[in-house]
Computed example of a mutant assay.
Amino acid sequence: MQQSNSILKRKHKPVLRKIKIKTLKAFDENRIPTTTRKEVNVPVSSPEQLEDIQQKILEEVSKIPGAFVGLKKKDGPVVLMQAGTSNDTGKHFAFPEINPVLIYFNLALKKIELSQVTKKSFEECPTSDFIRKYHIFVDYFEAASSGVVHLLGAVEAFYNQLLPEDFTVVIDGNEKRKNKLEYISLDIKIQTVLPQVTGKDFPAANPDAWKLILELKTLRNRLTHLKKVKAENLTDYQKLSNDLYNTDFSKYIPAIQNFFDFYEPGLIEEDNET
């Protein structure tokens, strides 16, 4: 295994390690078509009373098709996800809607950080200790491959979020609607579809970052569509393992952050709280 001293730094600027997981979106109260609207401001004397009132509200809302609950926050109102009822308690649950894009990206950052710690342990382990080195590399492969997959998963999920429900585009003479556009290749998604959806062309504006994203996509595909590549020393996955081991995540993370910022400035915000 080739040695690497890669650390998560780029041009003397530390790479993101953790981001804030914001709710999916706020909504404009004045632009949502409603037939019935009711605001509830409840003077609460105890946590138990608040819990009881909230359960009654959620129970009633669950019976009304098309009804939703909003929560007023300092940065604007948000829609609440309603998670049905618990089989154990029969309670209704609701909370601001999650943004899977940020969860995937943050998970990737965590796994990549873990992979770098594991890599350090691998390099410090004596070469003669084959078995211990094997177990450490298994941990590295798990963390690094998960980081790669979730980095690209965040990109794919973000693309899907940007697609309007009624959007149609012609590709190679064939008309494709949203349900088809969600399953085409990443190259076509970013190079062909997004410029028509947003009026902004990331690959043209950021060719270096786009090249890095395509490199990462190739590695992701090799990991998820695993193929044996027989080497002269009779191993099947030595080339893939070496390439994953020597992946410089410090250049890929900023490229993907740049992609998010290009289409939605402020979406990615570093979380410095411990």
Rank of each mutant, 00 (worst) to 15 (best):
L8K: 04
L8G: 09
K11N: 14
P14K: 12
L16P: 06
L24F: 05
A26L: 14
N30L: 15
T35R: 10
E48R: 12
Q49S: 13
L58C: 08
K63D: 10
G66R: 12
F68E: 13
G70Y: 11
K73G: 13
V78G: 09
L80D: 00
M81S: 05
A83Q: 04
A83N: 01
G84T: 07
T85C: 08
N87Y: 11
G90C: 08
H92M: 07
F93C: 00
L102Q: 03
F105K: 00
N106A: 01
K111N: 14
K111M: 09
L114T: 14
P126D: 05
H135N: 06
V138M: 00
V138N: 03
D139I: 06
D139K: 04
A144C: 10
G147K: 03
V149R: 01
V155M: 06
P164D: 07
V170G: 05
D172N: 14
E175K: 07
I184D: 03
I190M: 00
L194W: 04
G199P: 06
F202G: 08
W210H: 11
L216V: 04
R220S: 05
V229A: 11
E232W: 14
Y237H: 11
N246Q: 12
D248Q: 08
I256S: 01
F259G: 00
Y263A: 09
E264Q: 15
P265Q: 13
D271G: 03
N272H: 10
